[in-house]
Simulated assay, not measured.
Amino acid sequence: MIELLVNRWAYVTFIILMVTGLYIMVASPNLVKKVIGLNLFQSAVFLFFIASAYVEGGSPPIVPPDGGGGPYVSPLPHVIVLTAIVVGVSLTAVALALIVRIYEEYGTLDEAVLREVADD
């Protein structure tokens, strides 16, 4: 079991980050903390994509002129993660802008209080 944890540390970190982010999103009544939890969850997904794309002894996907080479690493997961980072930053910016507007309008960031105000 210890050897599995040592060899697959990226997956263990992925699980810890994902569970922590999900817990923060579900358990916290504060909207800013929910956005932080979402960012942790997104980071866990990024780590999973990069860790799963690892190829033991892999080389860059540039074929030499002689046609030789070993197993190649796919660049697709890295490109997907870069795109997801840009989308994640944009999502965070929009969410925080909405949170600022909500606070200016209602004077609170507590989800329960906002639901009570919305029901009135």
Rank of each mutant, 00 (worst) to 15 (best):
Y72E: 14
L82M: 11
V87L: 13
L38D: 12
H78D: 04
T92R: 07
V94S: 06
L47N: 01
V117Y: 10
V81E: 02
A118E: 12
I24G: 03
I16V: 15
A95F: 14
V19Y: 02
S74E: 14
L40C: 06
V45Y: 03
I2Y: 09
G58T: 04
V35A: 09
Q42H: 11
A53Y: 07
S90G: 15
F14H: 03
N30R: 14
I50C: 00
L5S: 11
P71L: 15
T20P: 07
I62D: 10
V113C: 03
L17E: 01
A53T: 07
Y54K: 08
P65K: 05
F14E: 02
F46T: 00
A27Q: 08
S28M: 14
M1G: 09
D119E: 14
V32R: 13
P71N: 15
I102K: 01
P65S: 07
V26D: 04
S43M: 15
L82Y: 09
V19R: 00
V86F: 13
A53F: 05
T20H: 01
E3L: 06
I50F: 01
E105Q: 13
P64T: 06
V100C: 04
E104N: 10
R101Q: 13
E111Q: 13
E111H: 11
A27G: 07
L47T: 06
T83Q: 08
I16T: 11
P65Y: 02
